[in-house]
Amino acid sequence: KYSDMIVAAIQAEKNRAGSSRQSIQKYIKSHYKVGENADSQIKLSIKRLVTTGVLKQTKGVGASGSFRLA
Rank of each mutant, 00 (worst) to 15 (best):
V54P: 00
I46E: 01
R68D: 04
K59C: 14
A9N: 00
G62N: 07
S20E: 04
T51I: 13
G18L: 04
Q41P: 02
Q11D: 04
Y27K: 01
I42W: 03
Q25W: 09
A38G: 04
Y2I: 09
T51D: 12
G60K: 08
K56A: 08
F67W: 07
A17G: 13
K47A: 11
S45C: 15
K1D: 13
A63I: 09
R68F: 14
S45R: 04
A17R: 11
S3V: 12
D39G: 06
T52F: 08
I6K: 15
R48D: 08
K47F: 10
G60C: 10
A17K: 11
M5Y: 06
S45D: 06
E36G: 10
A63P: 07
Q57V: 14
S20N: 06
K33E: 12
S23G: 05
G60D: 05
T58H: 07
G62T: 07
F67K: 02
G53Q: 03
E36D: 10
Q41C: 15
L44H: 08
K26S: 10
D4E: 12
Q22Y: 10
Q25A: 14
S23W: 14
H31W: 03
R68Y: 14
R21V: 15
K47R: 09
D39M: 08
L44P: 01
M5P: 01
I24R: 01
A17M: 11
A38H: 05
K14N: 14
I24E: 00
V61M: 11
S20Y: 02
S66E: 07
K29L: 09
Y27N: 00
A70L: 07
Q22R: 08
M5Q: 02
E36Y: 09
K1M: 10
V7T: 04
R21I: 15
H31D: 00
Y32P: 01
I24L: 02
S64R: 12
G18H: 05
G65Y: 15
A38C: 13
L69T: 03
K56Y: 11
H31F: 05
I24Q: 00
A12C: 10
S30A: 12
K26F: 09
K29E: 06
G35Y: 04
A8I: 06
R68E: 09
S40W: 14
S23K: 05
A70D: 05
L44A: 12
G65H: 13
Q22K: 09
A17W: 14
T52C: 15
S64N: 12
K26R: 11
T51E: 15
Q57D: 04
D39L: 07
Q11T: 10
L49W: 01
G65V: 15
G35I: 04
I10C: 06
L55S: 01
A9F: 07
T58M: 11
R16Y: 10
R16I: 12
A70Q: 07
A9M: 03
S45Y: 12
Q11K: 13
Y32H: 03
S64F: 09
I6M: 00
R21C: 15
N37H: 08
L49P: 00
S3F: 14
S20K: 03
T58K: 06
I10V: 14
S40L: 13
K29A: 06
S23N: 07
I24G: 00
L55N: 00
A17V: 08
A70K: 05
I42H: 00
I10K: 00
L44I: 11
M5F: 04
I10H: 01
D4T: 08
G35N: 05
L55P: 00
K14W: 06
Y27C: 02
V61R: 15
R16S: 14
G62W: 06
E13V: 07
Q41N: 07
S3H: 11
V61H: 12
V54D: 15
S20T: 15
S45I: 12
T51M: 14
R21N: 08
Q57A: 11
S30T: 10
G35L: 15
G65R: 12
A12I: 03
I6H: 02
G62P: 04
Q11V: 12
L44G: 07
S64L: 12
N37S: 06
S64E: 15
N37V: 05
G60Q: 07
T52L: 14
R16W: 12
Y2Q: 00
Q25S: 12
R68W: 10
R68Q: 13
V54Q: 04
V50L: 10
A8F: 05
K26C: 08
Y32S: 02
K47Y: 11
E36K: 15
A8C: 11
A12Q: 06
I28P: 01
H31N: 07
R21P: 11
Y2H: 02
S20I: 05
D39A: 09
Y2W: 15
A63N: 12
A63Y: 08
T52Y: 08
S66G: 12
I10M: 05
A63H: 11
V34S: 02
G65L: 14
D39V: 08
T58P: 04
I46N: 00
G60V: 07
S23E: 10
Q22G: 09
Q41V: 08
S64D: 12
I24S: 00
I28A: 00
S20F: 03
S64Q: 12
G65K: 13
N37R: 08
G62C: 08
K1N: 12
H31G: 01
A12S: 09
V34L: 08
Q25V: 15
S20M: 03
K43I: 14
A12W: 07
L69N: 04
G53V: 03
G35S: 07
Q41R: 11
L55W: 01
Y2R: 00
K56G: 03
I24D: 00
L69D: 03
G35E: 06
Q22P: 04
L69M: 07
A12D: 05
S64V: 09
I10A: 02
K47P: 04
Q41W: 12
S3W: 06
S64Y: 09
E13I: 11
V34W: 02
S20W: 04
K59Y: 10
N15W: 05
Q25Y: 11
R68K: 12
L55Y: 01
T51Y: 10
Q11G: 06
A63D: 11
V50M: 04
Q57H: 11
R48S: 08
E13S: 11
Q25I: 15
A63W: 07
A8L: 05
V7L: 12
T51R: 13
L69A: 04
S66D: 04
S19Y: 02
I28N: 02
K29N: 06
F67S: 02
I46A: 01
V50I: 08
K47H: 09
R48N: 12
L44C: 15
S3K: 10
A12K: 04
K47V: 10
S23L: 03
R21F: 15
G60A: 07
G60Y: 06
R16K: 13
Q25D: 06
R21T: 15
V7K: 05
K59S: 11
Y27G: 00
S66Q: 10
K14D: 11
R21G: 10
M5C: 05
T58W: 07
A12V: 05
Y32F: 13
A63T: 12
Y27D: 02
S40V: 13
L69W: 03
L69V: 06
Q41E: 13
A9G: 00
S20Q: 04
K56C: 14
K29H: 10
K14P: 09
I6Q: 00
V50N: 01
N15P: 02
Y32C: 05
D39F: 05
L69S: 02
R16E: 13
I10R: 00
G62Q: 05
F67Q: 02
L55D: 00
M5K: 03
S19I: 10
A9S: 03
E13Q: 10
I28Y: 00
K33R: 10
G53T: 01
